[in-house]
Design a protein around this nucleic acid. Structure first.
Lengths: 258, 258
DNA sequence: CGTAACATTGAGTTCTCTCAAAGGGCGTGG
DNA sequence: CCACGCCCTTTGAGAGAACTCAATGTTACG
């Protein structure tokens, strides 16, 4: 096929022309519940398809809030480093999720946003976003909802960390990730983790060895299959049960007396 | 003085007539940075001086978001109870602090708001607040800022819980509380805790006994003086140091060889 | 195919939790 | 004003979970 480059160009052109209205993520993103005419106002301020390389930073702690970002694909982490130097992963962000609301308070970012994979983002200048939101009640409402969801996610994160044991946190982490993958239409039973064990550890407030042991334990119990970052969920119901504090009474000897 | 009741009545009347413009908390609250004319619009929707008794709930988890509240005095806690029944104190709220933003996501509260002492609150119907905010850019901005601060506080809370040992969390808790007391012009060196050891434990993700031991240890080390809920800060610098991970190398025998 | 980063596994230690009981503060009622 | 009782708080002892340090195994990428 000599014309291979032609269709590709057409697709690119199409996707460039396509705005929020055609985006597969629109139900999860700012446009949700906004009429066609209003949507155009939003469309005009969104800078689409900025490519980001693995390891690249969207912003760092201390930067002024210029824009918020929506991951179109790929994955990000937001990381906060305390004065004493220990790092806390504040959140992971996959397609359709907003990044940058941490600066809402003082107008200055409190954490770094790092690409875990190569990725593409939409960039939404924040000043313009609030300006448009003031004129479009639907957007105003959706913006509040998105902010609220972000707060809810933080709350869930907190609940996941406090007074839960390591295996419980890890199960919760996996359950949460699966649900989000399902939301964006990706496989929730077989996937590749975009983040390292260390990232997970810093997210869950555990030592990385503890995370590794947790994965191994889940594998030994037949709940998941793990090879490095490749994960397969074998028993979602059991995983769910473990996430809610359920425990295997004792380590069952697999293949022994039964 | 026979006329004792008269001045009291005058004061009450005055404080009833006084709106946000005269409120001692206005710099911490929604009116911050809003002009006099715009302020009146906000003033008109705020229901002032609703008294609340100790133990009373402003709202419970599951309630629709009707209004947000600002504590005028007294103290509140917000508590989230998981399906498994264990409770997490999401936050403590003293004068000038907003309560109720937890419902921003789905429009339904995620936690109970309980008065820890008798208190007074301003009630701000949320629909009307956003409506006014859409017309008053200053208020819009301030609302965002307040929401952002709320998120920042949650972040700080998370940082306080993760990978920090018990004594560090307790020191951080005290440092944070002192700062907030200072903000509202109350003594930050001598005060009465509005919450029980159990509340603190549920806030810090510790067992209540561990909290009690932590207070005792701080007292033994001469950093604070504690009698029940009465606390006096004796060595603020040392408290600050402990909050940042500093440790007394070994338990010094006080009064011994020196 | 080699290398460097990442992940797993093991052993010993420390911190916090749990269970249990005794010691005050505070409000109520006499 | 004092005494009583309840609840909150403090303190002790033992157990368990996760951390740290250390070494080995594996994956992914050039």
């Amino acid at each position: 096929m000599e014309t291979l480059s032609k269709p590709t160009a057409v697709i690119d052109l199409a996707s460039l022309r396509h705005g929020c209205a055609q985006c597969s993520l629109r139900q999860l993103c700012l446009p949700a519940g906004i009429g066609a005419t209003d949507l155009q106002q939003l469309d005009e301020i969104v800078k689409r398809r900025r490519p980001v390389e693995r390891g690249e930073l969207l912003f760092r702690a201390g930067d002024r809030l210029g824009a918020v970002y929506v991951a179109r694909n790929g994955a990000f982490k937001t990381v906060s480093t305390s004065e004493e130097g220990d790092t806390q992963v504040v959140g992971f962000h996959i397609a359709g999720e907003l990044i940058g609301l941490d600066a809402l308070g003082e107008g200055v970012h409190r954490c770094d946003a790092v690409a875990l994979t190569s990725a593409n983002v939409c960039e939404v200048p924040f000043e313009q976003l609030t300006a448009v939101a003031a004129q479009v009640p639907g957007l105003q409402q959706q913006l509040m909802r998105v902010i609220g969801h972000s707060m809810s996610r933080d709350q869930d994160h907190l609940q996941m960390l406090v007074r839960r044991q390591a295996n419980e946190r890890i199960a919760l982490f996996l359950v949460g990730l699966c649900e989000r993958l399902r939301n964006i239409g990706e496989s929730a039973t077989q996937f590749r983790l975009p983040m390292s064990r260390e990232d997970i550890a810093h997210f869950l407030g555990l030592a990385l060895e503890t995370v590794s042991r947790g994965f191994s334990r889940l594998q030994d119990d037949g709940v998941i299959a793990v090879v490095g970052r490749k994960v397969e969920i074998l028993d979602a119901a059991e995983l769910q049960r473990l996430a809610q504090g359920g425990e295997l009474p004792c380590p069952v000897k697999r293949g022994a007396t039964g």
